[in-house]
Nucleic acid binder design. Sequence first.
DNA 1: GATTTTACATACAGACATGTATGTAAATCT
DNA 2: AGATTTACATACATGTCTGTATGTAAAATC
Lengths: 208, 208
Amino acid sequence: MARKTKAEAALTRDRIVACARQVFSRDGVTNTSLEHVAKEAGVTRGAVYWHFRNKADLFMAVRQQTGILLRFGDFKTGDALRRLECGLHDALSRLAEDKQARETYEVMLWKCEYVGEFAGVRNDLMAAGNRFLAEATELYGEALKEKLVDPALDPRLAARETFCFYAGMLKLWLADDSGLAVRDDVLKVISHHIESRRLKKTVRQKAV
Amino acid sequence: MARKTKAEAALTRDRIVACARQVFSRDGVTNTSLEHVAKEAGVTRGAVYWHFRNKADLFMAVRQQTGILLRFGDFKTGDALRRLECGLHDALSRLAEDKQARETYEVMLWKCEYVGEFAGVRNDLMAAGNRFLAEATELYGEALKEKLVDPALDPRLAARETFCFYAGMLKLWLADDSGLAVRDDVLKVISHHIESRRLKKTVRQKAV
DNA sequence: GATTTTACATACAGACATGTATGTAAATCT
DNA sequence: AGATTTACATACATGTCTGTATGTAAAATC
């Protein structure tokens, strides 16, 4: 077969990854054979095995092609609570707009078994979770200093709570057909979660 | 082969289900062949196919063998918020004590791909979720009537938030090795989630 | 311009899973 | 007590997936 140019090869690689994501999200990771992926991408398994060592390796590439969802650092305006809210808001909005991100996360949360070679992926996920926890703890700490929240609030617990909330929301949002109930008003639910912590002025002055 | 008595047959059936849960939780649903399950249970695939139509059917049996985790109805004492808290508390405690429940939920949340025949299971899960939502909404409504919470609280949104929180907490708690951080103080996080909604007396009287 | 890689396609061998068909001895029914 | 059904074990036929080995024509290198 006619050898492809380097640029062309990069294109087929990208195409394979994109098709893998699509097929994974349709059939589940374990159920999709590399031949299914290859056929979808218009190549043979030879091409897939040229670019990737095996399915797990391809799966990693799928994950890498989709960037991180949550970037608290992007938001510099507003107080700590608002920055938290904006971060979560932004993540869910991106999910709604970006089909690629949606598919990738659906695969990770609903169409993948974290076993064997994939157990490592779960550790990756949890590492990302720990970064979330650290950032959220930081932000709640700030909120405490700025007296935006009940002075008795424990930033560590609050961050863990928000983490659980976010993880569950993401998963439920992605449960397509059945998740529509949650999907309708995620943004409101997020605001509710964050804003319900905010102390009203009259409350802050007169409470206890 | 010597035909077994009805009682004996029921025992082997139970044994197959129990072993299936164990193997599922170790190797993932898609990766386990019915022969693996059979071998673990000390029978052949013949026995498995006698009792179950296929793997999906067996999986349903695994789910059914483990009862429902969350029973708000069991708690009659205390105000609405406390009953909510007790329900969540109880679910997580049961998870910590009951290995069977732990394995079953680990399979459902981490070791299963919701695709094809298993898409129906996800709908089951979401139906259970809707019951959760209904009960939680009810309880928040009560809390509102009893003036335990901010009168501006929207029970519907609050219930959805708690639902997301619970779903994420369950999933994170079950991420064994990596989830230990969350596991240590789930109970405190739950209390934090519920109690942070409770209006303090001085606040309730003087706010706005 | 000859040589060496590259980017695949094709071919091959082995493992494994599934569903069903068939056999069978004992439990259950009548 | 004979007939029937049950609770499996065994055997079979088939499809599928994986990894690797090999072939090849054109890029890339020199």
